[in-house]
Design a protein around this nucleic acid. Sequence first.
RNA 1: GCGGAAGUAGUGUAGAGGUUAUCACAGGGGCUUCCCAAGCCCUUAACCCGGGUUCAAAUCCCGGCUUCCGCACCA
Length: 510
Amino acid sequence: MHVEEEVDNIKPESIRKAEMNIEDLLGYARRTGMFWPAAEIYGGSAGLFDYGHIGAMLKRRFENIWLSYFVERNQNYFLIDGTTLFPEKPLIASGHAERFNDILIACKKCKTYYRADVLLSDLGVQLNEGATPSEVDAAVTKNSLKCPKCGGPLGEAKPFNMMIDVALGPDRSDHGYLRPETAQSAYLNFYREYNLLRQKLPLGLAIIGRAYRNEISPRQGLYRLRELIQAELQIFFDDQSFLPDFSGFSETRINVVPYVTGKLEALTPNELISKGYPAFYVYHMAIIDRFYRKILGVPDSKFRFLEKGGEDKAFYNRIHMDIEIEVESWGGFKEVGGLHYRGDYDLTSHTKGSNKSMAAKSGDREFIPHVLELSFGVDRNIWAQVDLFYRSSDNRQLLSLKPYLAPYSAAILPLQNDDAINAKAKETFVQLARKFRVFFDSSGSIGKRYARMDEIGTPYCITIDYDTIDSKSSNFGSVTVRSRDSREQIRVNISELENYLTSSINVMLE
RNA sequence: GCGGAAGUAGUGUAGAGGUUAUCACAGGGGCUUCCCAAGCCCUUAACCCGGGUUCAAAUCCCGGCUUCCGCACCA
């Protein structure tokens, strides 16, 4: 059987990346089992999404690869977990209760909302840092301020906190919040882990978990969510001695838009260091760059760091870069993560708040460890993967994910609904399912089944045919393995399948 | 939150006061075929939610929810 000759091979490069807007991508996600609005049978709720049987696997794979790459390859970095429900005190200490708290003011006529500090400074009125709502109201009255848009009267200033309140206890009088970032769980556990891990720095604490923000306007699919999943690594270190090993990154060119120039540049680590970025920061830029470009396969031109400064930079960050991917359905480069040098802000805040010293020692020197935060939005990254790797032509839809990210690693497809073929196929399924997530499908034509697997990104389709079970055939005991992107097929002995898949799927995951 | 547009089987859609609510794909059953989304027959399945107008509402009106686009917001 010379099936290869009959295949109308289409080079994967010839299949264009599908042009997708948000609705197209949401439609794809719904029809393939990726994700859709939570509680959708009741009409859904803005900013909340559920993952389906395909999306949940993709998400899990992303998280596992992230964990393996950023955490498990470093002997000083560890995975922990923390509650999503927080008592009030740590969030007062961290500044979230106050700072996460914008004062909003609305026009009574056109109902436009403004941030009080922004509105007043635009109108030439200076407010003190941390002004209260009544101070804002007083300033509005004193200066007879009107809505800049419609000239209407301004309403009362009201605090708006991005955190979601929770009332605890039998009379619901204990005040808590859903955590606004996983980072806080790491800071709260630093002291114990630092001692458990024998007081060594650097110490990395990673958390993959949920965080909650009461976004005013959740939008754009998985971009702005009220409940989101973060994968974060908080590295605690001695700022006078943290010097990671750069060998292996010296030739890398990293796309970065520095704040001072605002222009995209492709710089080597040494060039970045000579521009004044600390070596430990640059090292982690290189690590992140490799993750996106090599492990996830993001094209060079679609990946960059964007440095934030001035108003855009959070007050506690010393260096703040967004990790950005060009996502067509989101209309351009969008933030999927961040690399933040937070200095000693976090541990100092929690030392003050808790009266628990978190100082580390190095010789005679006592110091508060600094924090470098690697923060990733898992949902945003999942969306970006689909956007980047969904390809479409007239008769083919293809999700060309890296094999190790694909929800199913392989599909087992009996060529025909024949008892002997089916029995062999099921036996093969059981054998492979011990090591891989495999899909079994015996319904429909073989072409239709290939197409279904292409659309959810299954990298390999294993077909059991008559030759497989024909002891007179030279192909006895072997199956065809079809590669998703090239559609090329090779014959592999069933006894070799496990090795074949292991090495093929993990290629690139060095 | 504001303004505009929209919400019909699982998916994509037609339908503009009275239809057994259109078509395709998907799903189920059957016949046939078997390495790249084959064909034929049968079949399951929908008007976002709640009010109102009307003899009659998927269709018109009001409210809610959700989505998209723009604005605002996004320590």
